[in-house]
Design a protein around this nucleic acid. Structure first.
Length: 213
DNA sequence: GCGACAG
DNA sequence: ATCTTGTCGC
C-alpha cells in the first residue's frame, strides 16, 4: 500500500474514502471484538491488537508489531500516523474479529473520516471510535449515572455521543466508524466497559503495546 | 486574526 | 503521545 506524505495528499485520500463510510448496522451481535492501540517512544512505535470474546471478554488472540513513525501528528490527519502499523498488526492475527474498537474518533471528525472510519473502510470490518477526549463538536454534559449519554453535534449534525461508562467518571466520546449505527456503537461501548471507564478492548491493547516498547 | 486541536 | 508528586479512595 502507498501512503500519502503531505497533508494535502492525506486530505485528498480522506475526501475520497469518506464516501465509502456506512453508518448502519450489519448482522448480529459480534462474537470477537478487537481493541486497537499504538504506543510511541520517539520515532519508534508499537501497534497492538487484542481480540476478546464478546460474551466473556476473555482474550482469544493478540498481535503486536514494531514500527517507526512515518507521518507527524496533525489534528485531523491522525489516522495516517497509526493506520499502517495497525493494519500490519491485524494481519498477524490468527482470527478475524467482527468489530474493531479504535482509540480515537470515527465520523466525529472535520471531514467525517477519523481513525475508526479509516480502519473500518480499509478492512471492511465494522468499527467504532471510542476517544478519551473531545476533538470536534458541541455537547451537553451527560447525567452522572453509567449509561447516560449526550449528543455530539457538529455543523448541525449528530456525529457521535458523549457516553458515561461509569458513575461519576469522565465520559468517553463515541462515534460510528463503519458498518455500525451510533445507537449500536454506544451499546457496544457500554457492554465492553463493565467495570472501568475505558472498554476492556482498549485496556488490553494499551497494556500490550505499552509492554512491547 | 485568535484559539483549539483524537493520539 | 509525553513531561510529572502527591494524594484520596476502595
Amino acid at each position: 500500500m502507498n501512503w500519502p506524505t503531505t497533508a494535502a495528499e492525506a486530505i485528498a485520500v480522506q475526501e475520497e474514502l469518506r464516501e465509502q463510510v456506512d453508518r448502519s448496522d450489519h448482522g448480529r451481535a459480534p462474537r470477537f471484538v478487537a481493541g486497537l492501540d499504538v504506543q510511541y517512544d520517539g520515532d519508534r512505535l508499537a501497534a497492538a491488537v487484542v481480540v476478546l470474546e464478546w460474551a466473556t471478554l476473555a482474550e482469544v488472540d493478540r498481535a503486536v508489531v514494531p514500527g517507526t513513525t512515518k507521518f507527524p501528528y496533525v489534528p485531523g490527519l491522525f489516522a495516517f500516523r497509526e493506520v499502517p502499523a495497525l493494519l500490519d498488526a491485524l494481519e498477524q492475527l490468527t482470527s478475524t474479529p467482527d468489530l474493531l474498537v479504535c482509540d480515537g474518533q470515527g465520523v466525529a471528525h472535520p471531514r467525517r473520516f477519523g481513525l475508526a472510519s479509516h480502519v473500518g473502510v480499509l478492512t471492511g470490518i465494522p468499527a467504532i471510535g471510542v476517544a478519551k477526549t473531545a476533538f470536534v463538536g458541541t455537547h451537553a454534559d451527560p447525567a452522572s449515572a453509567r449509561g447516560s449519554t449526550a449528543e455530539l453535534v457538529l455543523d448541525g449534525e449528530v456525529v457521535g455521543a458523549v457516553v458515561r461508562t461509569q458513575d461519576g467518571v469522565k465520559p468517553l466520546y463515541v462515534s460510528v466508524g463503519h458498518r455500525v449505527s451510533l445507537p449500536t456503537a454506544i451499546s457496544h461501548t457500554l457492554h465492553l466497559s463493565p467495570r472501568y471507564r475505558l472498554p476492556e478492548t482498549t485496556r488490553a491493547a494499551d497494556r500490550l503495546c505499552r509492554d512491547a516498547l
